[in-house]
Design a protein around this nucleic acid. Structure first.
Length: 300
DNA sequence: GCGTCCAGGTCTACC
DNA sequence: GGTAGACCTGGACGC
């Protein structure tokens, strides 16, 4: 049994982070909302993947795995956790930007704004394509099938998110017939092929020097990635000026910020424009503030 | 039981 | 550069 502790920034809020959007509900994440423990399957080099659990501990987080691991493997797990929970992101400028605004000052107080992400951009991108133009139930079904049918097995019987190579090895028919991805089947196959062959490097999006508009153009070159998917992936690589408006956001904005009346995209843009390069994150926090209402465990 | 709508959109063809 | 129409799936809804 492995157990490691990692420190977190003073402003870090574990619950707000793991519950920052829907990813914690999709395998190979599993979220226990009663105990606020996040389970995740992590890939490691030259051995089967492992299931880890992450929970709050004094001064930071405690990570547990059900087996012994060497020092390098523990370091790899800690690195993946820091990446997923955005522990090294500097949100001070964001908190300064929202701090003076009524209805937004809670964001800094509660330490919101760290959006959970997968260990790889590839996984985030595949999942984002699986959220387009369908219900969340269908997204869940597609992602489940990918992990169940193509992921590597852990010692405790779970499965990791499939590698680009594992996905590239399957034909388009697999994605329509088994994954039930519909017209997205070709997009998933093409994306996996491009990454497995080295033609496209999406992990490089994390560190690229490209300005956000150019990076967004790069993202939209991937078939199946439009404005919504690109702007959401931009958030997950740390760029927050896109609003990533979708049917859920439009509906929520109308209900909470426009007296129930339909709001144009222009109006939504104007509402958050004062937050500049942080407007997309301000919007997301504003729209998801009530997700923890009624949950006392979330307060700390 | 059957048809329609639409959900955390995107692509293509055509102006 | 802007926009209609098509596109897989599956659950909700009305009849």
């Amino acid at each position: 049994m492995m157990q490691i502790k990692i420190s977190t920034p003073r402003s870090f809020n574990f619950v707000r982070t793991v519950f920052s959007h829907g990813w914690s509900e999709l395998v190979p994440f599993e979220l226990d909302q009663k105990k606020w423990r996040l389970l995740r399957v992590i890939d490691l080099p030259a051995r089967p993947p492992v299931s880890i659990t992450i929970c709050r501990a004094k001064g930071g987080l405690r990570i547990e795995a059900g087996e012994e691991l060497n020092e390098a493997q523990e370091a790899a797990i800690a690195k993946a956790v820091r990446h997923m929970l955005r522990l090294d992101d500097d949100l001070k400028p964001f908190y300064a930007a929202v701090g003076g605004s009524e209805n937004f000052e809670w964001i800094a107080r509660e330490g919101a704004g760290r959006l959970l992400r997968a260990p790889t951009v590839f996984e985030d991108l595949v999942k984002m394509i699986c959220t387009t133009n369908c219900s969340w139930a269908l997204t869940d079904k597609m992602v489940n099938a990918l992990v169940r049918l193509l992921g590597s097995e852990t010692p405790d019987g779970r499965r990791s998110f499939p590698s680009p190579e594992a996905m590239a090895a399957m034909p388009v028919a697999f994605y329509s017939n088994e994954v039930r991805a519909g017209y997205r089947a070709g997009y998933l196959k093409e994306l996996a092929d491009q990454i497995a062959s080295g033609a496209v490097d999406v992990e490089g999006w994390l560190t690229t020097e490209l300005a956000t508009p150019e990076l967004k153009r790069e993202m939209k070159k991937i078939k199946g990635v439009g404005d919504y998917a690109a702007e959401n992936v931009l958030r997950l690589v740390g760029r927050y000026d896109g609003l990533a408006l979708d049917s859920w956001i439009r509906s929520k904005f109308s209900r909470t910020r426009n007296k129930g009346r339909t709001a144009s995209d222009k109006k939504i843009e104007r509402y958050y424009s004062s937050f500049g390069e942080w407007r997309g994150l301000a919007l997301w926090c504003d729209m998801t503030r009530d997700w923890l209402d009624g949950n006392k465990a979330a307060a700390s």
